[in-house]
Amino acid sequence: MSRTLILSIGSELRGDDGVGKAITARLRISNSLPTGVEIVDCGTGDLSTILMRPDIKKVIIVDAANMGLLPGEWRRILVNDNISEILSEGDRENSHGLGIIQTIVLSKILGTLPEEIVIFGIQPQNIEYHRGLSSPVISTVTEVCKAIHFELELTQTEEDPVPNYLFAQFKLTESHI
């Protein structure tokens, strides 16, 4: 049976960088996730093996993303539509473990890339070392959860994916702050 994987990435010790975990924690207790959906909180661990599973058809990544937007604003980003752009960026290796961009590039090269990867990026306000989310980011958690539920319903009914919000093209990189 093909499965959908929801991944949260980030450190809950760095303020709004913990928004991914906050969202997947909310999804986990919602009791309304379809069967075949698995949630993994990746924290700040190495991600190199996460896309190696052959049973995974779709991956939803929830992460803080610096998009030049107002804190708390979020975007849905289809990775597969922009894979060539990501491939050109993915060789910038500047971390200890492999981040999500490098993992996507690596799994593309090794032929293990899932059919569909969607990123829900949330603009943070503050990622200095401290615990807790900022007010604008807290207030967006429910909205992103709703959007992910909608995404999962579409996956279940095998309808066409919803289009990207607002932007068709983008450049995706990863920094280590």
């Binding site: 992460d63 610096n66 980003i77 990026g121 920094s175 280590h176």
Partner: peptide
């Protein structure tokens, strides 16, 4: 070395 545990921040530049 593990100098810090970085925040692995995605950078998205819309074009």
């Amino acid at each position: 070395p593990c100098i810090s545990c970085s925040a692995h921040m995605l950078e998205v530049k819309f074009v």
